[in-house]
């Protein structure tokens, strides 16, 4: 059952990835990317890594994909026409339909014994211990990386 669910999510991810490739506009590609990311988040959740699924949805789909879309939208007007001429109607409908289907399915089968893989609190606890224990330095470094990225943007912008 879980396998079917993961298969569905994976299939949709592949579908939307291919759709992203064949879009005429960058806006469309970014949109399809968003859906893919959400599908991946769902996959994580269904596999059992609940925390990671939520983080994926929040950070990746919620921030990065939005950043991409914003970059597309923020391009100068003469380029924007090329890139962001709107998405096809059917794509929009599909993008609404797919999550609806998935949610429906999840609701239907979630309650049963093997609707979704069991949450793995132990594993996640271990993950937390790892991140702030043995890999504390690495965590700090990655945090610094994000800080640096933000600062570099700010600094350059200050000059420009």
């Amino acid at each position: 059952m879980i396998a079917v669910a993961i298969a569905v999510c994976g299939g949709f991810a592949v579908l939307f990835a291919l759709l992203a490739f064949f879009q005429r506009t960058l806006y469309g590609s970014a949109f399809c990317l968003l859906v893919v990311l959400l599908q991946v988040a769902a996959s994580f959740y269904l596999m059992g890594a609940r925390l990671l699924g939520c983080i994926q949805a929040l950070v990746y789909a919620g921030a990065i994909a939005v950043l991409v879309v914003m970059a597309v939208m923020a391009s100068p007007p003469r380029v924007k026409e090329l890139w962001s001429g709107g998405i096809p109607k059917w794509l929009a409908w599909l993008a609404i339909l797919v999550p609806a289907l998935e949610l429906a399915g999840f609701a239907r089968f979630a309650g049963s014994a093997d609707g979704a893989a069991a949450a793995l609190p132990l594993l996640e606890k271990q993950m937390a211990l790892l991140l702030f224990g043995r890999w504390a330095l690495l965590t700090e470094v990655v945090g610094l990386l994000i800080l640096l990225a933000a600062l570099s943007v700010v600094r350059e912008d200050a000059h420009g």
Binding site: I55, Q56, V59, Y60, A63, I64, L67, V68, V142, G143, L145, I146, L148, A149, A150, S152, V153
Partner: peptide, 10 residues
């Protein structure tokens, strides 16, 4: 995921 976020920003 965190590193990818930073990379996307830059």
């Amino acid at each position: 995921i965190a590193a990818a976020a930073a990379e996307a920003v830059v």
